[in-house]
Design a protein around this nucleic acid. Structure first.
Lengths: 229, 229
DNA sequence: TCAAAAGTGTTAAGTTTACACCCATGG
DNA sequence: CCATGGGTGTAAACTTAACACTTTTGA
């Protein structure tokens, strides 16, 4: 009557080498030996699911390196793992691109577009994570979670392109994020490379907390014409 | 090590008498006797969470009356219910406005804006459900789940207004939903009331499956200028 | 003929895309 | 002075909100 194991799993995503990658570890033992799986584990008695996934990820990456964590969904197919029933709460985790976490020897990063053989239903969880990230990049300030503290617009463009899976225009990216008040110039610039070019200005995200920035695509509340800056 | 009770709960919403209401039942016994709580119960051994919530709702309302069901989130605070630990997967359920389900005697509908004293963390779940519904009305075709098979634009306007919590213009509602191809006229009309007026045309939703209709607020993929009708 | 309700026309505002053009630097 | 990025100006496209106006009916 409703008694089941409960595990928490996280698809930790990071833009690495120009592509969106997910952290996976290779199972040594059966079931699904040598297949790649998401980090996580059993829910402890005195912790909620978010506390739990943060604790378990600390074994893989320093939790301070996680710029964002959010619930994705429950995966509860009775046959999702063999043996005793285990329900999983899946999370999306993000690591900013300037960090290269030290990971255990059984753990590695894999591009989400070309996943290796994955264990259980972990591939579906990865897909869900990628999809959630792409959506939120459009209507929230979640870019902060992929980017280093300071960056050039073209660096940010690369991050967005990798996460979204298609080219983003640097011009328009800057316009949109600036209009919404998400970006501010640091005042600093970066020296051009050996082939020259104008020095790029550095920017930072104004906020490091996720916020919805494009709340209503349509059907907005009646205008109160008093919100303009 | 990760063994806990698991329950499924649903905030079933319907627009009734011009307001968005949620179905609650009054607890007879402790804990939280006489407080109102969401329908649901323990996860069965051979069912996933969605199957489970549909099964349990069948005791309250005919499942065929549910026009939409989706996961909201996991609620897992170790102290969320007294006694043995229970993790809950919360759902949003919707019932179209033309249906008046027969509910058990301990069960009643309550406006989500003026909830009675609720049990456990059920108030938070209700808020989450209302918020999810409002968001999805803007960027999906989820209106179909609130509306009867055929309806006038002004009836639809009332449904959207109740669910969103603010007045929606019938003119613009029709424009937006028609532009997106969600509505089609049935050809029928409704006779005007006793005070006269032009007969209203009847419409229906083209699809009864949830679909995202406004996928990218910004940062769209490069245009392929070949999608126009 | 008037009031009431429904539906259409039209304008204005806001946002984003696309692209031409200018800027700053290294060789 | 030219190539190479970086950044801005500007126009066009698209959508939605607001509201005036027309249509259709009952009294």
């Amino acid at each position: 009557m409703g008694l089941a194991g409960h595990e928490v799993l996280a698809a930790v995503l990071q833009v690495r080498a120009g592509s969106l990658q997910v952290m996976l570890w290779e199972r040594a033992r059966e079931p699904h030996a040598h297949r790649w799986s998401l980090p996580g584990g059993g829910l402890g008695d005195d912790e909620d699911v978010e506390t739990s996934i943060r604790r378990q990820l600390a074994e893989k990456v320093d939790v301070r390196q996680l710029s964002h964590v959010e619930q994705l969904a429950v995966f509860s197919n009775p046959a999702r793992v063999p043996g005793l029933r285990v329900v999983a709460t899946a999370f999306l985790g993000l690591v900013p691109s300037h960090i290269d976490p030290v990971v255990p020897s059984d753990t590695a990063w894999h591009p989400v577009d070309t996943l290796p053989s994955t264990a259980f239903d972990h591939q579906a969880i990865c897909r869900r994570a990628r999809s959630r990230l792409a959506s939120k990049l459009s209507y929230t300030n979640l870019g902060f979670a992929l980017a280093p503290p300071e960056f050039t617009i073209s660096a940010l463009r690369s991050l967005y392109s990798a996460a979204l899976g298609y080219k983003v225009s640097a011009t328009n990216l800057q316009r949109v994020l600036s209009r919404r008040g998400l970006l501010e110039p640091t005042g600093g610039t970066v020296q051009p490379g050996p082939s020259g070019g104008r020095p790029a200005a550095l920017f930072r995200f104004v906020s490091g907390e996720m916020r919805i920035t494009d709340p209503f695509a349509v059907l907005r509340p009646p205008s109160t014409r008093s919100l303009g800056s």
